[in-house]
Design a protein around this nucleic acid. Structure first.
Lengths: 160, 160
DNA sequence: TATTGTTATACTCTATAACTATA
DNA sequence: TATAGTTATAGAGTATAACAATA
């Protein structure tokens, strides 16, 4: 037992969280960090980061999408998206296509190599995602997904 | 309407997410980013960051806790916690106490000023948290909180 | 030897604004 | 004038390892 103490379960038995225990801001962050931790702990060797994998998956599903549309959908900032796409391009996974209609924009596509990798990695990612949420029953998991989507899509009163 | 397009609702109607739509990793990240965005959009002037506020709240609730315990509970890394606590100390909000029993450790406490600020800010934070999740019914919100806690505390099969 | 906390370093991601090239 | 994307720069946060003091 070499661990010192990064186990929320242990801590949570000792420390009081007060109202923070019911804070959506706190819990969404803690959940995100926890899930990412578990994924990295289980998948010694993902060939790409989660952001990169998600971007490539969306490119595969949305062949006509502009770079900025995909960035916005994933809430990746444009400056970061530029670098991320360039890195994928340098690895020969992604193509940047400037359409004739609007030559300011950039359409993204997967190279054959990118297609292969995306196809190969997809089931692995889904399995990982199931594993790190295995504590939830299928019904609870689906409920959580639905509630998160509702929260994300819904409350845009402040958008403009 | 000066906005260009960072509204997930709009995007989500156009782009296909495929299996990513059911990914816990993706959705916890997206939810966290979205909730934080909304909080910052609404609270022009929080006197401290969310991490700082949460740390001070936990100090108030757990007067005997060590610095590292609080860091672990909030999944804040120790090197960052050191800087965060020092900054709070320099603002006169937090005290660092080295207990006689174990002089390696540091116990944290709030100064009177820190107490005041924490007490004043608590209802504001709770209201903000409710606002940014207002799309959910009270039952749905409670359900979400419960499911997130179950996810966080539960699946620790990989912990050691 | 192990633990608590600090320091240092490099890296990832964010925030912001200025810039380009198109439209 | 506005939009798509890029570049530059500063900051927050992470990851890692080395370190000091104490146990």
């Amino acid at each position: 037992m070499l661990k010192m103490s990064s186990d929320v379960k242990d801590i949570e038995e000792e420390l009081s969280f007060g109202e923070v225990e019911h804070s959506a801001a706190f819990l969404t962050r803690l959940a995100q960090v926890t899930v990412y931790e578990r994924i990295f702990a289980r998948s010694e060797a993902l060939p790409l980061g989660l952001a990169e994998i998600t971007v490539m998956t969306l490119i595969a599903l949305n062949p006509k999408a502009r770079q900025g549309e995909i960035a916005d959908a994933l809430k990746i900032k444009w400056p970061r998206m530029t670098k991320l796409v360039r890195a994928l391009e340098e690895q020969g996974l992604v193509e940047r296509i400037v359409p004739k209609g609007d030559r300011r924009s950039v359409m993204l596509g997967l190279t054959p190599k990118g297609q292969e990798l995306t196809t190969a990695i997809r089931p692995k990612m889904e399995a990982l995602d199931q594993e790190v949420t295995a504590i939830l029953s299928p019904e609870e998991r689906e409920q959580l997904i639905e509630l998160l989507w509702k929260l994300i899509i819904g409350g845009n009163q402040d958008a403009s």
